[in-house]
Nucleic acid binder design. Sequence first.
DNA 1: ATAAGGATTCCACTTGCTGGAAGGTCAAGA
DNA 2: TCTTGACCTTCCAGCAAGTGGAATCCTTAT
Lengths: 140, 140
Amino acid sequence: MNIGDVARRSGLPAKTIRYYEEIGLISPLRGANGYRSFRDSDLHKLAFLGRARSLGFSIEDCRGLLKLYEDDSRASADVKRIAQEHLHRIEAKIEELQTMHGTLSHLVAACAGDARPDCPILSDLAESDAAPQPGAQRRS
Amino acid sequence: MNIGDVARRSGLPAKTIRYYEEIGLISPLRGANGYRSFRDSDLHKLAFLGRARSLGFSIEDCRGLLKLYEDDSRASADVKRIAQEHLHRIEAKIEELQTMHGTLSHLVAACAGDARPDCPILSDLAESDAAPQPGAQRRS
DNA sequence: ATAAGGATTCCACTTGCTGGAAGGTCAAGA
DNA sequence: TCTTGACCTTCCAGCAAGTGGAATCCTTAT
């Protein structure tokens, strides 16, 4: 299979597939003409990667998952640990976004959104209270 | 004020402040020794930027907000539009993360997490169904 | 005089690709 | 046979939003 076929069948752009080879996630063979020659196993790995990435796993997580996937003597605990850590990161991110959402939706609701210059959004951003401490959350 | 003072008072790292100057968000004066010399107005802008960034606004959004902030004849509608668009992006991101979270938490719950190799997480990632179409969501 | 603690610049690196340029290859049609 | 067009190749540059480090300069105090 050439890269175009694999791209269509895996749903990943050819550029991305080349990139995955460059960073060592896959190692397709090469034909006499220099073209990459993908085996079924390469296609499977790419599909695996596409699904893992769509769940938000980082490339390094994907590298680890792929290694475990190929290791018949793996422990499912190792897989679960990676997934759980990722799940925690997702939860933290959701919380962070929800905090932003809370603040911002209040401000948006309070803004008239007309031709006048008065704007609670700008007033809030301009408020000169204490400098934010690292990791501090502003009021919601 | 030197950059160290401004960093302490704005809560932003000096590196970030230099970067903000480089991309034209602020334009502090320079002393005879080549040191940046920050006015109160620069400090206020940096605090403004810090708060806007902490609400997740992109640098380009911040540039626009800062411009409106400085424009006495602004229309609050322009501010509100920027904020609303950002709010929509936040909502979309939250939904995306919640979808990931749903899938992943099911998989994590189904995984024994012991020394055996059987793992529903890997099985799911390895599933060879149709290639994902652009924008498609996998089942939750 | 010298050492510490600031300040300066510049360059490289991060994540995960994406775009484009310049060129080689291959199969089909006139 | 030639050419066209669709592939493929590599390499270089860039996105966001900084962060880290090196080499060097300035200031202040001992």
